[in-house]
């Protein structure tokens, strides 16, 4: 196995293109190094992208917040503007692993690892984040939602690298929230994750809403019907009860070592309802 530390994206793409099989991108390494401990792991190339300019930076541009692929999640919480704009994304990213993991793990890695239970992915999908992809055939920008296509599978072509995640500037009176369920208070993989983003009208009713459910299907589930139930309301109890039921119905989980189908469906609704309340309240606090 070779370790390479290119200084430009072009070089990184070149390296990966030259070794299309059994090559891996290294940013935080919190997933890759775990896999490397496995006796069955074999790789020919690891490309460390952390020394490429911009990979470790958060920039605010006309397009919104551009978060480099190697920005550790701990750094997101240190960016006051980002926290103010998208608290739901930052809180989701900050739930990944321990303090130690936070120092290293990245949202891009969380996204490209394509784990169904990734905490930051529902939050990114709910805010309609985009990703900047560079590759041997050129650059492209696609919705974050379209990166994972199934457990462990992405839509990235060989040699392609997600260089950054772009979060749009939130509309006025927008709130976001992410809640997950884990059996302990820390250190677990989400059994259910729910992200809600909503924008209020001047009269306090919900103007638009977007909901994303994690860990209850092979990919993030975006129950638009459920989200639409919130629009035009002030989240009265009846609406929330219907919304909760709709989210539970939308969930298509499996039984596994972390939870049962029945549990996940029920808790998906509960947490979506709670996240919607938080997002609504946050929307009211912003200008």
């Amino acid at each position: 196995m070779r370790y390479e530390r290119p200084e430009t994206l072009e070089d990184a793409v070149g390296l990966l293109s030259a070794t299309p099989e059994r090559s891996h991108i290294l940013a935080g390494g919190t997933d890759l190094l775990v896999r490397m401990k496995n006796d069955d792991f074999d790789a020919d190339l690891v490309v460390d992208i952390k020394r490429i300019a911009g990979m470790g930076e958060i920039a605010r541009t006309d397009a919104g917040f551009v978060i480099g692929a190697a920005v550790p999640c701990a750094k997101l919480a240190e960016d006051a503007a980002l926290v103010a704009a998208w608290p739901g994304v930052v809180e989701a990213a900050n739930l990944i692993g321990s303090t130690q993991i936070q120092s290293r793990c990245t949202m891009t890695g969380n996204l490209c690892n394509a784990g169904p239970a990734a905490d930051s992915v529902p939050a990114l999908v709910a805010v309609d984040a985009r990703v900047k992809i560079v590759g041997p055939e050129g650059n492209r920008i696609i919705p974050a939602r379209d990166v994972p296509v199934g457990p462990g599978q992405t839509s990235l072509a060989p040699g392609e690298i997600v260089a950054a995640i772009v979060l749009p500037e939130p509309a006025p009176q927008t709130g976001s929230a992410y809640l997950r369920f884990i059996p302990r208070t820390e250190m677990d993989i989400a059994v259910v994750g729910t992200a809600v983003v909503l924008t209020r009208d001047a009269d306090g009713t919900v103007a638009s809403a977007r909901v994303a459910l994690g860990a209850v299907g092979p990919r993030v589930i975006v129950p638009d019907d459920a989200a639409q139930m919130l629009v035009g309301t002030t989240l009265d109890d009846d609406t929330l009860a219907r919304f909760e039921a709709a989210c539970s119905d939308a969930a298509t989980p499996i039984d596994d070592k972390r939870g049962t189908v029945a549990f996940r469906k029920e808790v998906a609704g509960v947490l979506a309802r709670r996240a919607a309340k938080i997002a609504y309240d946050r929307a009211g606090e912003t200008q």
């Binding site: 370790y3 190094l33 775990v34 550790p72 321990s98 303090t99 130690q100 993991i101 120092s103 250190m187």
Partner: peptide
Amino acid sequence: TGDCGACSTMLDGRIVCSCLVL
């Protein structure tokens, strides 16, 4: 695998699991 923290070290001012750093 980064789950126990017994290998915690500081890397450029941040606490990391050294088992998950090359």
